[in-house]
Design a protein around this nucleic acid. Structure first.
Lengths: 337, 337
DNA sequence: TTGTATGCGTTATCAC
DNA sequence: GTGATAACGCATACAA
């Protein structure tokens, strides 16, 4: 393992001071063209590469943005990371990604590690387990800006980017209604919690405005969003004396499972039963076009979050920046005809 | 922005030397229990956090593994990253992720950045554009271990993890043959290139062994793997006087598009036309179960790659480690009946 | 324009 | 056990 070349080596070879080399390398305007060229040339010849750790130590910043997501392994989060990276890259920031795997303990560790690595800012979408936010407050106290996205906490005084679940769900329901559907079932998570509640309220709101009643046994709660659960739900709904003519699915996986169940039962989609699903921009490609899907623009969400954190990082004042809450509208990406 | 507490601050408060504090904070078998406890306690009280940059500077290592993938935004890559992170985390390594976006220029920049950040090792899957591997050789010369995965280059003397495309394609084709299919079409990328060739050869090999001829107009090359291209291809195949009874799709996206086309044309799957696709372990969940899919175990691939790089990093000798080439078998995850 | 000196936060090598 | 002190590689205030 070769010892890396340092500015000291260059300085020695050129019989000048390290300060001059440093300046030449960083394109300082207070340096002569000649020495600058000489340094640059020798640096290339000697295969010099700056040590970013040392630079970070001195500058007290690393040009790195830390990102914490529940898992990298799902389109939604992968997309949002992609969006973050997309923005960060243009500003010469690197992105350091971690997944909490929905574990609070791991999330706390990660946030600590990121802070200790002197990342310039942290973007985080909380794990499902996270109910205590002391780790975030600690990081904020350390002067590291934090921006929340998608899985946020209203109590924290930081900028956030969230999806407009209420309006999205409402629009999707209205979409069904406008297609003449009148007995719309709901398949989703516990109605009391966060996004689940928001989407349900949106669903409910659209129905109320259209003066449509929803039958209680057309509402199915499931806490695990799996293919299989969705299939069970459809079987259950279809065995019901009053069959629905549409299903509002909370998540894309559910919608896909539902579709599959329809095939098994010989139900025509969307004529007999329309299926809609809250998906994200990419999943749409993978699923059946008889499905109406609602996009959560995750890539754009990442971009927005990244822009916010960069703004905070580069805020010259010591004054706290006003905290924004961006509510991102959802889009219908694919409509069944 | 508060100034972070350093060991110097702790030393001052306790009237001891920084060396002692450093020892107490870390190893400490040569330190008295009392001072150790005192330091630890005060550190907590003062909200001390170690500066990983400084530590990295002195240790000449960062406890970070750099990862470069074409895009984070696809299941396959997201899965492999997940696998990498899974292994790295247990060894207390962090993972720094970048996407080359299939751009050679960006890939070179990223590799340079990673090396300059003094990452302890680099895992890379090359972009499609990458034909020159000088950037890798440079990094290797700098003493930073590199492991390639999935998109590799045989010329480089480093460890690699790849998918067994030939055997996977062969097995999948044999699967079709064992189901009585005799007119099998091929839908995939340019037959001359890398994985495309390997899979095609596997396809061909299975047919040869079964003494089945494949009609030239049953082979469709498409360089862009899109839903639409697949649909076009199926329409084209089906307008052919001799219709195929099965289609070997190079990628999952193609298979899904093909399925869709079958629906439009009223083709029964898999009775009239069996569709198979090279997918990965996750996509299977999203697609129609009438599909036979071949799994590329991307998560496991990431795990393997991570294990290899960790081994190289922690190799005590200065002797070069033997370079392994792990060929990962593919699996059939879902069979159509 | 260039050089000198100092410091960033931590660890390692000596001494004591 | 503990304490000075010198690194690690780089940047900058201050002189010259």
């Amino acid at each position: 393992m070769k010892k890396p070349i340092t500015i000291k080596d260059i300085a020695k070879s050129l019989n000048i001071s390290v300060a001059t080399v440093s300046r030449a390398l960083r394109d300082s305007n207070e340096i002569s063209k000649e020495t600058k060229r000489a340094v640059l040339q020798l640096a290339k010849e000697m295969d010099y590469h700056p040590n970013l750790l040392a630079r970070g130590l001195i500058n007290r910043k690393s040009k790195i943005i830390g990102v914490v997501v529940p898992t990298i392994n799902r389109q939604f989060w992968a997309n949002s990371i992609s969006g973050i990276e997309n923005i960060a890259y243009n500003d010469d920031y690197k992105v350091m990604i971690f997944q909490s795997a929905e574990s609070f303990r791991k999330e706390v560790e990660i946030v600590e590690t990121l802070a200790n690595s002197r990342v310039d800012g942290i973007l985080i979408a909380f794990s499902k387990e996270t109910l205590d936010f002391e780790h975030i407050n600690q990081v904020l106290n350390r002067g590291i800006p934090v921006v929340l996205f998608e899985r946020v906490c209203d109590l924290l005084e930081v900028s956030k980017v969230v999806t407009d679940d209420f309006l999205g769900a409402k629009k999707m329901t209205e979409h069904l209604i406008s297609r003449g559907k009148k007995k719309i079932a709901y398949l989703g998570g516990p109605l009391t919690l966060g996004v689940c509640r928001d989407r349900y309220l949106g669903f409910e709101s659209a129905l109320k405005e259209a003066e449509i009643q929803v039958s209680p046994d057309h509402i199915i709660e499931t806490d695990e969003f799996t293919f299989e659960n969705a299939k069970k739900a459809i079987h259950q709904l279809w065995s019901n004396p009053s069959k629905p003519d549409a299903v509002f699915c909370f998540a894309d996986v559910l919608a896909i499972g539902a579709l599959d169940a329809c095939k098994e039962l010989g139900i025509k989609v969307p004529q007999q039963l329309a299926i809609t699903g809250f998906g994200n921009d990419d999943t749409g490609r993978f699923i059946n076009p008889t499905l109406t899907t609602m996009a959560q623009p995750s890539f754009e969400m990442g971009q927005l979050a990244a822009k916010l954190i960069l703004k905070e990082i580069n805020a010259t004042t010591e004054l706290p920046l006003p905290k924004l809450e961006i509510i991102q509208p959802t889009l219908i990406v694919r409509e069944s005809t």
